[in-house]
């Protein structure tokens, strides 16, 4: 099927003796937003980190862009990892580089693109997130929300086929959260393929084309977005939704 960007079948993963992912089966549809929900420690982050090779897995099949990933091949992601953008909770900008240098490192050194073109795109993206004046700032001079927007631009400029967002608003001050979520919404409208781990339920409701609900390392529900929020099929999902909306 061409409209599925990731296919996972019977994937298992342990950390030592601890089972973190059990028999995961799922698909990530192209040009859609998939939201991964679940309580803390349910394995959400670990799951999406296997999608770009930051985490290995023990058994099962993982197919990305129609290409099968061998879990024991360290280089399996070498060719495709720059087509998968990722933004982390802790932004992790490179403190030794300016905003612009953070953004252009990937396109210049990995993709070997033309510098003028890269700078143009970088400025355009920075303008879209409202940071056009900050290109020569160092990360330490920015607020958390600003850093996170730079991190998003740093991932987007690689023109990825898939974007992974790992709780990108979790360590932001409340007043910063909205700005970052707005950007994510805009991206959703541009038909970018996105996988989003979040605790922001209102935001999830608005953008989710599909929901994957995880608990204790298992997929409890895989469901169309609206349906999951309106009529969850399992008790665990209902309990979770109730606990999140007060």
């Amino acid at each position: 099927m061409t409209d599925e960007i990731i296919q996972v079948r019977h994937l298992n993963k342990k950390f030592g003796d601890k089972v973190v992912l059990t028999d995961i089966n799922l698909t990530i549809p192209k040009n859609k937003v998939t939201v991964v929900l679940g309580p803390s420690g349910s394995g959400k982050s670990t799951l999406i980190r296997t999608f770009n090779g930051l985490e290995s897995f023990d058994s099962g099949d993982l197919e990305i862009f129609g290409q099968k990933i061998d879990p024991h091949d360290k280089k399996a992601f070498a060719v495709i990892k720059h087509e998968i953008g990722m933004v982390f909770q802790s932004y992790d900008l490179f403190p030794n580089r300016t905003v612009m240098q953070n953004i252009t490192l990937g396109p210049l050194k990995v993709q070997k693109r033309n510098e003028k073109e890269v700078l143009g795109q970088a400025r355009q993206l920075l303008a879209e997130v409202g940071l056009e004046k900050f290109e020569n700032y160092y990360p330490r001079q920015l607020s958390g929300g600003q850093k996170q927007r730079v991190a998003i631009v740093r991932a987007l400029i690689l023109n990825p086929k898939l974007m992974l967002f790992d709780e990108v608003t979790a360590s932001l001050d409340p007043e910063m959260v909205r700005g970052v979520l707005e950007i994510l919404k805009q991206l959703a409208e541009q038909d970018l393929t996105m996988v989003v781990v979040t605790h922001e339920m209102n935001f999830a409701k608005q953008v989710a084309d599909k929901v994957i609900f995880l608990d204790s390392g298992e997929i409890v529900e895989e469901q169309a977005g609206q349906k999951f929020f309106q009529e969850p099929q399992t008790k665990r999902a209902r309990v979770f939704l109730e606990s999140m909306s007060f």
Binding site: N52, G53, L54, A78, K81, H82, I84, G85, M86, F88, S90, D92, L93, F94, L105, G106, K109, V110, Q111, A151, R154, A155, L158
Partner: peptide, 18 residues
């Protein structure tokens, strides 16, 4: 150097050497 730095470098596609 924080683990996140290594992961970020990986996520934008840098090789180990880069």
């Amino acid at each position: 150097v924080a683990k996140g730095q290594k992961e970020s470098a990986y996520a934008i596609g840098l090789t180990t050497w880069q």
